[in-house]
Structures are given as structure tokens and as C-alpha cells.
């Protein structure tokens, strides 16, 4: 092991994160290298200082009470009332059905509202797009760098939809790709994740004035969310699907 290699492993050595054999090799080098030994000692002092300095922030006095109060409100809100039995039974059936299909999280109904609120939030926020580009050669590598997968990124300019760019969004605690397109005066958010990684796509529908539709391209699920009319969104979906499938079939990952 070279001097530089050992140096790059010393932090992991301090943290006891090295494989046994690597640790032994590091120690062998340390015995003969005064520079690394001195560096290690200085580093250990720094880490000890960090631990000793009481730098954790204590929880503000009222936070636990605030959270407790909100949890109890949640409970009261969901106290079972007779007129809810039907709805709750239906919800249970959906939940159990989802569970049996092997994907209990997030549930499709939640996923739908989550998708709509994610796209509303993004559009109202100061930065709806993290990587601004109409070129999939820019957007795709950026997304691949942020995510554990590389989503299809159709450009669709020839069909009248301009790719504005992409961003990474959270659905629950999972990260998904989001592409943003301009169609006339409307914007369309397309959420993409690998099949099996999250939930299946929610059923097509409308929520709070937004329409949702979905498709699959190769191993990916894509959900389109927009305030575009249902018919127009469906034709957008088909254009997107055709282009994305062609790209994934061609092996362009």
C-alpha cells in the first residue's frame, strides 16, 4: 500500500471502518511512517475535541409537547364515527390488497395526492427545476448522478412539448426523477422511478384540478401530473411513452 493510499484510509481507520486485512496493512505502514503517525495523532485529537465539545443542540422545550399535541389531534380526527365505517372498511381492503400485491408503501391513494402536492409545491417554489436544459444529454447525466438509476429523458421538441429540465423529488423517503415539460401555457411534471423500487403507478384520475396519468417504459414507471386537459395529457403521455420506449429498447440507459 502506498503512502497516499494509507493517508486516504486513515479517517476510516480512526472510525474502525476498515476490513481487518486493510487495517493490518495500514498499521504496518504506520510503524514505518512518522508523517502518517503524526497526522493520525493530530486527527485523533480533532475528533476527540469534536466529541468533547458538547456541540449537539438540545431539543427546544416545547417541541416534544407540540409533536405530542399534533399526534393526539391526529387521533381525535380519526376517531371512528359510524358514517366512516364504510370508508374505513374500503380503505382496509385497499391496504390489504396492496399488501398482498407486495407493495404496501406508499399506498396508491396517498401516492396520488403526494404526487400532486409535490408538483404543486415544485411549481410554486422558487426553483421548480434543478437542472435547466432542453437537452437530454445534459438532464439525463445530471439525474443519473443524483439517483441510483438513470431515467429515460425524451426531448419531444419536435412534437411541440419543450423539455424545461429536471429535478429530484422525494416521495415519502424515496427519491425519484422529475422532468418538467412546457406544453402551450401548461407545465407537465413527469415522475419516474424504476418498477419495483417504490409503488406501482396510481390509477389515472384528477385531484385538486390536476390530472394524473401513467405509463411504463422499459423498467420504469412514469406518472404525468398537469393541469392540462385529460385528453391532451393522454396524448402527451403517448408521445412520451413512444419516445422513451424507443430509447430504452435501443439500450440507451
Amino acid at each position: 500500500m502506498t503512502h497516499d493510499e494509507v493517508r486516504s484510509l486513515l479517517d476510516a481507520y480512526i472510525d474502525d471502518e476498515l476490513e481487518l486485512a486493510t487495517g493490518v496493512a495500514v498499521e504496518a505502514h504506520l510503524r514505518g511512517c512518522a508523517e502518517c503517525t503524526a497526522w493520525l495523532a493530530e486527527r485523533r485529537t480533532l475528533v476527540a475535541q469534536l466529541h468533547a465539545a458538547a456541540l449537539r443542540y438540545p431539543v427546544p422545550g416545547d417541541l416534544e409537547a407540540r409533536i405530542g399535541a399534533q399526534l393526539r389531534t391526529q387521533d381525535r380526527r380519526y376517531k371512528i364515527q359510524p358514517q366512516w365505517f364504510g370508508a374505513i372498511a374500503a380503505g382496509l381492503i385497499v391496504a390489504i390488497g396492496g399488501f398482498l400485491l407486495g407493495h404496501s408503501w406508499p399506498r396508491p391513494a396517498d401516492l396520488r395526492s403526494e404526487l400532486v402536492s409535490a408538483s404543486v409545491r415544485a411549481m410554486l417554489g422558487p426553483h421548480p427545476i434543478d437542472v435547466v436544459s432542453s437537452d437530454h444529454h445534459t438532464v439525463k447525466p445530471w439525474l443519473s448522478g443524483q439517483l441510483p438509476f438513470s431515467p429515460p429523458v425524451p426531448e419531444l421538441a419536435a412534437q411541440g412539448d419543450t423539455l424545461l429540465g429536471g429535478r429530484v423529488d422525494y416521495l415519502g423517503s424515496a427519491r425519484v426523477a422529475a422532468l418538467v415539460y412546457q406544453h402551450g401555457h401548461h407545465q407537465i411534471n413527469v415522475y419516474i422511478w424504476p418498477r419495483g423500487a417504490l409503488a406501482e403507478a396510481p390509477r389515472d384520475g384528477a385531484l385538486d384540478g390536476y390530472h394524473l396519468t401513467s405509463t411504463q417504459a422499459g423498467q420504469f414507471i412514469a406518472v404525468m401530473v398537469s393541469d392540462l386537459a385529460v385528453g391532451e395529457l393522454a396524448t402527451f403521455r403517448d408521445r412520451w411513452h413512444a419516445d422513451a420506449s424507443a430509447a430504452t429498447d435501443a439500450g440507451e440507459h
Binding site: 449537539r56 443542540y57 438540545p58 431539543v59 427546544p60 417541541l63 416534544e64 409533536i67 405530542g68 399526534l71 393526539r72 391526529q74 387521533d75 380526527r77 380519526y78 371512528i80 374505513i88 380503505g91 382496509l92 391496504a95 399506498r107
Partner: peptide
């Protein structure tokens, strides 16, 4: 999910709230 019944919330509290200090920090 049977939305937020008391027992479920209490189970959640027992699992999550011990880590509130780490979460806040």
C-alpha cells in the same frame, strides 16, 4: 392503513420519539 388509531399512534411514539433528540440535532 386504518388511519391513526390510538394504539397505532402509541406504538409509533414508542418507536420514534426516543430518537427525537437525534432528529432535532
Amino acid at each position: 392503513m386504518p388511519p391513526g388509531d390510538g394504539a397505532r399512534t402509541r406504538r409509533f411514539e414508542a418507536v420514534a420519539l426516543p430518537h427525537l433528540a437525534a432528529a432535532y440535532n
